[in-house]
């Protein structure tokens, strides 16, 4: 088994859930639980594919995907933040809407080819033996996803806006008392979360598979939701979680393909087993890091 090819495959396999989980983490940091990640991902997958095919440009595809999913997520934002609907039910509704809508939009795009995405070799670094082909010869979205992780980390840790976002998520009453616009902050976070999920979905349809097939995200959005918990709501944790999950998935397929003498049942279970194991370890430590107001509706007159 070639470790260079393996690591390169892991990065491709992990990118969609990394993007979606990162967006969802920001949403949850603002105190909103959006269970519609799967619906936003599949919407991003179909819109990104359609836009890329129509214009011939994958970049336009990704931008359109981010915008479409972000706008879709605002419907969730409007219902939960303005009309104060239940977040769990509305999020599940968003998933169903996304799945249905994508099937409708994508009807004419089956069997169509996606425009190719060139690999972006990072000058200098890509030439390094072993490390170069592993990490520095990917399509641009892999780097965008990593930059986003770093950006979100810096934003939450070092900026005033990040502090406000966290304050809104921890205790919306206090944040409101301090004069922060709770609903506005949350809508912005939901918008960002939607855009990230859209990018993740478009990565599946434009790079990882690459084609449009109805229902093609096949539960990746739910994995992203689990990874946010797994990460204890920390950007670095999301990165590790997504790469661990993507890594174990790809590794088990490679072990099977290489004819390793390990029972297939065990290999197929391994991504889920490891996720559960880490969740147990986190719980045992007693530190969850869940934002204090997560999932609770906020109404200013209360």
């Amino acid at each position: 088994m070639d470790p260079v090819l393996l690591v390169a495959s892991i990065m491709v396999s992990a990118t969609p859930i990394l993007l979606a989980a990162l967006g969802e983490m920001v949403v949850e940091k603002a105190g909103v639980l959006n269970l519609g990640v799967e619906g936003m991902m599949i919407t991003g997958a179909v819109v990104g594919f359609a836009a890329a095919v129509s214009t011939g440009s994958p970049v336009v595809g990704f931008l359109a995907a981010a915008l479409a999913s972000a706008v879709l997520s605002l419907s969730f934002g409007f219902l939960t933040q303005v009309l104060l609907s239940n977040q769990v039910a509305t999020g599940l509704g968003l998933t169903l809407v996304g799945l249905g809508l994508s099937a409708l939009v994508g009807a004419g795009f089956e069997g169509v080819r996606a425009p190719g995405m060139g690999k972006l070799w990072i000058p200098g670094l890509a030439e390094i033996p072993v490390i170069g082909p592993m990490f520095f010869r990917h399509d641009f979205m892999v780097y965008v996803s990593l930059l986003l992780v770093a950006g979100v980390w810096a934003f939450l840790k070092y900026t005033r806006a990040g502090l406000i976002l966290r304050a809104v998520g921890e205790d919306h009453e206090s944040a409101h008392a301090l004069g922060y616009k709770v609903v506005r902050v949350r809508l912005a976070a939901i918008f960002f979360g939607g855009a990230c999920a859209g990018l993740g979905g478009a990565y599946v349809s434009l790079v990882r598979v690459p084609q449009w097939t109805e229902g093609m995200t096949a539960g990746a959005g739910w994995i992203a939701l689990a990874i946010v918990v797994f990460a204890s709501w920390r950007p670095l944790g999301v990165l590790i979680g997504a790469y661990l999950f993507g890594g174990v998935t790809v590794l088990q397929l490679n072990l099977q393909a290489a004819g390793a003498k390990v029972p297939v049942e065990l290999l197929s279970m391994s991504p889920y087993l490891i996720t559960i194991l880490v969740l147990v370890i986190i719980s045992a430590r007693g530190v969850h890091g869940a934002p204090g107001s997560l999932g609770r509706s906020f109404h200013a007159s209360a």
Partner: peptide, 16 residues
């Protein structure tokens, strides 16, 4: 039916 998994499996086989 799981296009992403089918794609990953194909890639894993090619890598081997």
């Amino acid at each position: 039916f799981d296009p992403a998994k089918e794609a990953d499996a194909t890639q894993a086989l090619l890598d081997q």
